[in-house]
Design a protein around this nucleic acid. Structure first.
Lengths: 192, 192
DNA sequence: AAAAAAAGAATGAACATTCATTTTTATATA
DNA sequence: TATATAAAAATGAATGTTCATTCTTTTTTT
């Protein structure tokens, strides 16, 4: 166990360092040597755990995406009204964005740049399923606008990313009141 | 004039090449040598027109941002109802995003990465003024929700960027009908 | 023919990755 | 239990490449 645990610790330290450095400088501006230093490891050691830099970032992305999905959909159960279900999911996303903003910021970076390769990106998209089902049901019940899921996502979920980025830049400060205002805007934009 | 024109042409060729290459690979993954090649110029020549790579990108950003602003607010006049004014501005933004998607995509890249330095970013933010005034008036008239401009922007303007990026990736195809649906979502999210 | 603009080649730094050794861990033997 | 040794893990120092920028020479303009 000692040995296995040690490996896991080292891998986690590498993922953590990757997130922090990529968040602050972007993929191409974070050298492997810095990642190694922050994780207290030799540069060569990274290559015992990951194939190369791209692989390190892809794996980091998938790991963080999984944390996100687990957190967001854990509290969700299908037997609610569409509005309530949406509110539960939306609030969990907002909570993740506030509480785990390092992770949230990293995911945004990945979504907005060519940092992640296509297969990993595709893999990361599957997570949406429960939300898409909920929207489908909402459309059938005449509660949600009958428009493309991309539009629903763009208006009700993606704005949180924008606000998080603004907060990270220090331009905007999220408060409890803002969350409620934002939720209302999200719901208004997609409800019929 | 011949000489001056030649210089302007060369500078424009460099800006154009920068936009195209940065759009497809990002800032750090586009070497000066490629920019030079695409603009039919020697790498050394770039340094006659720009201080360094950062300066080249900053200037490109400001130039594109200006094109955007000019286009978006040209058709706007203050003597309309808040709703009509908003619709005019919003539709112009949508039109710019469709018709000049190379420019729109470049601006998104700049907004989502640490590619642009802080002074240039600050300079680029001023453009919003007419929209912010309109929202202010809308709040006073009780037509627009009394919430932070960041929230209004996040819900009514920023989603277009998300949709453009999805389109660029080939995941989503913008049609005339989508534009109308998107406008409705935008307006619903901010109206009282 | 002087000045300005442009070019290609050279420079030096940064970086991803690999290599040759050293250190640590696990195992087997006494 | 203590020791020897083989295997695994980790390391710091190369390696070779890519790139921004500068230097020197050539071409173009005045």
């Amino acid at each position: 166990m000692a040995k296995l645990q040690k490996s896991i610790d080292k891998r986690n330290a590498l993922l953590k360092a990757t997130i922090e450095l990529v968040n602050n400088s972007g993929f191409h501006a974070t050298p492997m040597s810095k990642i190694a230093k922050m994780a207290n490891v030799s540069p060569a050691t990274i290559y015992l755990y990951f194939e190369n830099k791209q692989d390190l970032v892809n794996q980091t992305y998938l790991e963080v995406k999984t944390k996100y999905t687990d957190f967001v959909f854990k509290a969700y159960d299908e037997n609610t009204s569409v509005k309530t279900g949406f509110e539960i999911i939306w609030k969990r996303i907002a909570e993740f964005n506030s509480n785990e903003c390092e992770y949230a910021f990293f995911l945004n970076q990945c979504n907005n740049t060519p940092m992640i390769d296509e297969p990993s990106r595709k893999e990361g998209i599957k997570y949406l399923q429960p939300l898409l089902h909920l929207w489908q049901r909402g459309k059938e019940e005449g509660v949600i606008k009958p428009v493309s899921d991309y539009i629903l996502y763009a208006y009700s979920i993606n704005p949180l990313s924008f606000l998080i980025m603004a907060q990270k830049r220090g331009e905007f400060q999220f408060t409890k009141a803002h969350i409620d205002e934002a939720f209302l805007a999200a719901w208004d934009s997609i409800k019929l």
